[in-house]
């Protein structure tokens, strides 16, 4: 689903065009506004914000809010800053993304190149699992994680995110492999390659783009998750989003807005970076999740 530009047959007059550009610019400002607010206010002392200067550039530039948010801010009961939670998120995201993408690739391979009766129905069940409201699984999941002894741990969250991520990763790879020529698989079969050899030697080397899409989508989703983190990993094991929320919502003491904004940017930074570097693939992932691939 590429949305690259093409020649449009529609012609517009000069006044209309000026108007169009104006409107587009206004919307750009609207979308940029919260980011601007976050960045600008994370770089000024608290007094400048409370004095009604939220929109203004800092009079005194300071990176202190960033340092505080990172290492000394009060998150919940402890004054550890967001650093340990950032690490929690990394430790959760990396294995969860790797495992769910790998499984998705294998599932997509089986569902397109080794079709069997009822495979589409099975895929439908996997796909629907992506869209359930997670409230429906919170209670039994809490129990099972407790039984497995991984309640509140990063391992528990990895399991949760793999389970609820494979629907999407399978969708990506299935759609991608559907258009991968089946004749290649047949040729490899005749050449004597087995199930895994065909996957490793023939399909996987051509799966770069979709693997990127899958990794980015999973990374963004899992990093940004809040409900599972809040339900299963409060306290020291909490991921970044939960910690940020605790930081912002903490009712004790003065509200240090500049630190909140700095914290928010820290929480947004990894996914924003991915978006800037590989936005094209991110959009592809979004579209594949909504329109047919």
């Amino acid at each position: 689903m590429a949305i690259s530009s093409q020649d449009t047959a529609i012609r517009t007059g000069r006044i209309t065009r000026t108007f169009i550009y104006l409107v587009l610019m206004l919307f750009a400002l609207f979308y940029m506004l919260p980011l601007y607010v976050m960045v600008v206010n994370s770089l000024k002392p608290l007094s400048e914000i409370t004095g009604g200067g939220m929109m203004a550039l800092p009079q005194v530039w300071t990176i202190e809010p960033w340092l505080k948010a990172w290492s000394t801010a009060q998150v919940g009961v402890q004054a550890t800053g967001l650093k340990p939670y950032f690490l929690n998120s990394i430790l959760m995201v990396v294995p969860a993304v790797a495992i769910s993408t790998m499984l998705g690739a294998l599932n997509g391979y089986v569902l397109t190149k080794w079709r069997f009766k009822g495979d589409t129905l099975l895929f439908g069940f996997m796909l629907f699992a992506c869209f359930i409201p997670f409230q429906i699984v919170l209670i039994p999941m809490a129990m099972v994680l407790g039984k497995l002894g991984i309640s509140g741990t990063t391992a528990g969250l990895v399991l949760v995110h793999v389970v609820y991520g494979i629907g999407f990763t399978t969708l990506y790879f299935r759609n991608y492999y559907t258009v991968f020529p089946t004749e290649l698989v047949r040729a490899a079969q005749i050449d004597g390659a087995g199930f895994f050899q065909i996957f490793w030697r023939i399909l996987l080397p051509s799966s770069g783009p979709i693997a990127v899409v899958s990794v980015i989508w999973q990374f963004t989703n899992i990093w940004n998750d809040f409900i599972f983190g809040a339900s299963f990993a409060s306290g020291n094991g909490a991921p970044m989003t939960v910690a940020l929320n605790n930081l912002v919502q903490s009712s004790t003491g003065v509200k240090e807005f500049n630190i909140h904004f700095a914290g928010a940017i820290l929480a947004a930074f990894p996914t924003l970076l991915v978006y800037i570097v590989a936005g094209r693939y991110f959009v592809r992932g979004l579209m594949a999740g909504s329109v047919k691939g």
Partner: peptide
């Protein structure tokens, strides 16, 4: 990309930004 980047952010992040931006006090 400017119109689309909010999709890459956590709702907690954007919620924080909007919470304080809309706060009557500041």
């Amino acid at each position: 990309p400017l119109y689309l980047y909010p999709m890459a952010l956590s709702f907690i992040v954007t919620g924080t930004a909007w919470k304080w931006f809309l706060d009557p006090g500041i």
